[in-house]
Design a protein around this nucleic acid. Structure first.
Lengths: 126, 126
DNA sequence: CCATGCGCTTGACATTTTATAGCGGTTTGC
DNA sequence: GCAAACCGCTATAAAATGTCAAGCGCATGG
């Protein structure tokens, strides 16, 4: 679609994959162990089957997720991370660390970053 | 929309913010220094003004980005990261490291993860 | 037996992102 | 001086994407 100026930016390329809706959630859940399709959908926080199937297929084609069919009937499948997928733990860990440090439980109107140590300014919105 | 089972998952909350389209790109660019609106749009790889404005406003309300209007006329505004925003460098760095390690320049049919170095398994990535 | 759950697809719908044009004005080029 | 380009940013419609609800074929639990 674009990306014509830079030869290859690893960060930008990785971001393109990870910023897709639900991807980071999927990885995060899978980091905890193999999961089934519906189980994964629930654990991600409610990813619908259509999107989940597409994300999973994409991640599988990328070699980040591995799909294992244990039996067609009754249907029993598990998704797990490959080595490349497990390596994303560093990313998820960094995100979680950031969240723990700068995000507060959110009262309801969206998350708010706590600018502790920052914002010497008098204004609000911190 | 959801999140009813867990009291507060920092990782999930942070992911909700970061997985929005262009957010990670914006942060990545801003990590390199303050930028103007249109400049930012170009550097992100072509984020359109409508989305960019919305993302910027959201990030600002979150306290991740700080907007500074130097002059209304001629219009001169700069966006830069707050301390919370700069802290995302760890996340971007982790993403970039992962990308460098597991992503290859992509021939054209989408990026492909290279499972080299890892995967002590006998078969191929499957 | 009937309801439920499994993995996953389909189709209609809602939300999000995109492209394009434009505002008011200053700067640049000729 | 005038036309064009650019600044930050908004409006609009169209396209892309994500969501919901239902369901297939079958095994299990009440």
């Amino acid at each position: 679609m674009h990306t014509v100026e830079e030869p290859f930016c690893a960060a930008a390329a990785a971001i393109e994959i990870l910023q897709q809706k639900w991807v980071l959630h999927i990885v995060r859940i899978l980091l905890d162990g193999p999961r089934g399709f519906n189980e994964l959908g629930r654990l991600t926080g409610g990813c619908n089957p259509a999107t989940l199937a597409q994300r999973l297929e994409h991640l599988e084609s990328l070699g980040i997720v591995r799909k294992t069919v244990h039996s067609y009937m009754p249907p029993r499948t598990t998704y797990e991370l490959t080595a490349a997928g497990v390596a994303l733990q560093d990313v998820v860990a960094a995100i979680e660390a950031w969240g723990k440090r700068y995000l507060r439980p959110a009262g309801g109107a969206g998350e708010v970053v706590c600018t502790q140590g920052e914002a010497p300014a008098p204004g609000r919105t911190g």
